[in-house]
């Protein structure tokens, strides 16, 4: 029987469309030409300039600190949220679910405007702390969704079994539930970390003087043509980090599926 080649061709084109721009970026980070229209020889000079750009590293360190603090808070809150959404099913969870899902469905711009209105109305000066609060807010939903996805395949009878064998509620949570959920929680934490490192739109709304995160720094670098090739080099390094994170999260996913 002859199957249509159309879906396969389209899939190949979609993959090309998604990855070609990034491949060009990586190539250009080694290209001596400034705009990368033509290949003018191999160079490390953009990486050297990146290495000397202190303002980029300051921004990177701030982003790293914020992402770590965000991940800690969002993972705890998101995991608790996922567990209560999974375990209970009443009016309270109805409201709870809406509050978890809505931040994912609304554009970031609105979340940024909302938080800006809040901090302005309460006269709270914007800075690292407001960025952290904003990041935790949108990361809770992502962590909750990832953990909830894992909970769907989770056999709750295991908890009852542990209970019947004489374990107390905290013992059940700590010795049975947590180890079984750990791959899901770690995958959620990794996602939260990545999202916090990457966020530009919401951060732009709630950042103040002296709180330039890495994406904000990239945005200001994009305005001067002198630093454009340096962004290529920085992007290549960030792509490598993203690749490692994705590979790690894939491994975590594989470990929790039982061998069949």
């Amino acid at each position: 029987m002859k199957r249509s080649r159309l879906p396969a061709t389209l899939t190949a084109l979609v993959l090309l469309f998604l990855n070609a721009p990034l491949a060009v970026l990586v190539l250009n980070s080694f290209n001596a030409s400034r705009f990368g229209g033509t290949w003018e020889g191999f160079t490390w000079q953009w990486y050297e300039r990146l290495w000397q750009a202190d303002e980029v590293w300051d921004a990177f360190l701030l982003s790293l600190r914020l992402a770590t603090a965000t991940t800690l808070a969002a993972t705890v809150l998101g995991t608790l949220a996922a567990w209560s959404l999974h375990r209970f099913n009443g009016r309270l969870q109805h409201v709870h679910r809406a509050l978890i899902v809505l931040p994912l469905a609304l554009p970031e711009l609105l979340m940024g405007m909302a938080l800006l209105s809040l901090f302005t109305a309460l006269h709270i000066p914007t800075g690292p702390l407001t960025i952290w609060a904003a990041h935790v807010t949108f990361c809770i939903s992502y962590v909750a969704m990832v953990v909830l996805g894992r909970l769907r395949d989770f056999d709750t009878h295991l908890l009852d079994a542990a209970r019947d064998l004489g374990a107390g509620p905290w013992q059940v949570a700590y010795r049975v539930l947590l180890p079984l959920l750990l791959p899901g929680i770690l995958a959620g934490a990794l996602l939260a970390f990545t999202l916090s490192m990457d966020d530009f739109v919401i951060t732009f709304f709630v950042s103040g003087p002296g709180s330039t995160t890495l994406p904000l720094r990239i945005a200001s670098m994009m305005k001067t043509s002198r630093s454009l090739p340096v962004i290529n080099a920085l992007s290549t390094l960030l792509l490598c980090a993203t690749f490692l994170a994705a590979a790690l999260s894939l491994r975590l996913g594989r470990r929790c599926t039982p061998p069949s």
Binding site: V24, F35, G37, T38, M222, S235, A246
Partner: peptide, 30 residues
């Protein structure tokens, strides 16, 4: 992985990649 990787890449960088690609001196125009 080939779908998720660009998706997880910094949003600004993805837009920037297109700006380079479509730039008057960029590869696609040439």
């Amino acid at each position: 992985l080939l779908i998720v990787l660009p998706f997880l890449t910094n949003f600004l960088i993805r837009v920037f990649a297109w700006k380079t690609l479509l730039h008057p001196d960029g590869p696609l125009t040439r």
